[in-house]
Design a protein around this nucleic acid. Structure first.
Lengths: 147, 147
DNA sequence: TGGTTTGTGCAACATTGTTGCAAATCTTTT
DNA sequence: AAAAGATTTGCAACAATGTTGCACAAACCA
């Protein structure tokens, strides 16, 4: 799915390649779900400065590498954008699935976003769909992974 | 739309009627959009303690009076639930519209939530749709109200 | 390689959310 | 209507989260 390596992804998005950015980006490449700020900070081997994480995530979002996922709890999560995102143009109309069982958030890139019929006067720019429920993994293993 | 008065709403949702709860609930009844924690704290005449606001919002959500709206920035917003919500059962599958111009969030209760086709193994419980764009008010008045 | 630009880490701070407890308020019962 | 009991409020202190300025270090470009 995301065949590219961290280094080239950074370059493609005109971000200078640094140790920290590589590490953070690789976390995302490995994670099959979305990550919150806290996830990254706690992420094992790499004791990043909090500030660095904030700034890194921020520039990743600006440069079209990550996109924020809306959540109802107070934690913003980020996921890798699909290939078509650039700094100038984000195309993030996709469906996110939040599992109530294991807490994982996944990005269902390939699912089509249904069209919404809005009242007159409202012009949509971006449509995000958040589905809560039970994910496939938890469905199979009732005593779920995490939460 | 929300013809009920604050007092009876509280009672119906088995919440004891207090000064603060009435005031906060009335803010929601008057607001035609969603409110964030900060909105309420700053809300004019009522200098509530921060803690009270937190706890009030929390119990309102628990008792099915309000529901949280997912957002991409870090601020949770709340909106009044429709009549069918109770403590036991929330029915909050609706469309929220966030205006990029004035920043207002409105709850498009009457708009049907499109059905999403999920991959096998995923079972949905709740579907929330967040649409960004320009709202009807800002459409008409290019130099928008707030932001 | 050297100079310039950009990113990092530290420290200090600002904001936001949480918890325990005593005083105030609401509800219910007498 | 008043008193007892339950719930809510506000304060204080704390914890967690996010922000800013600046010196130093690392990356980029020629």
């Amino acid at each position: 799915m995301y065949a590219k390596d961290a280094r080239s992804l950074l370059k493609e998005h005109s971000l200078s390649v640094t140790e920290g950015r590589l590490r953070i980006l690789e976390l995302f490449l490995r994670a099959n779900g979305a990550l919150s700020h806290a996830d990254i900070e706690k992420a094992g081997d790499a004791p990043f400065d909090r500030v660095t994480v904030y700034r890194t995530l921020q520039s990743f979002v600006e440069k079209g590498l990550l996109h924020p996922i809306p959540t109802s709890d107070n934690t913003v999560r980020y996921a890798l954008c699909n290939d078509t995102c650039t700094e100038a143009h984000h195309q993030d109309d996709h469906v996110h699935f939040v599992c109530n069982h294991c807490g994982k958030t996944v990005c269902l890139d390939h699912i089509a976003v249904p069209s919404v019929h809005l009242p007159t006067g409202f012009s949509p720019r971006q449509v995000q769909v958040i589905v809560n429920g039970v994910c496939d993994a938890c469905q199979r293993a009732p005593r779920g992974p995490k939460a």
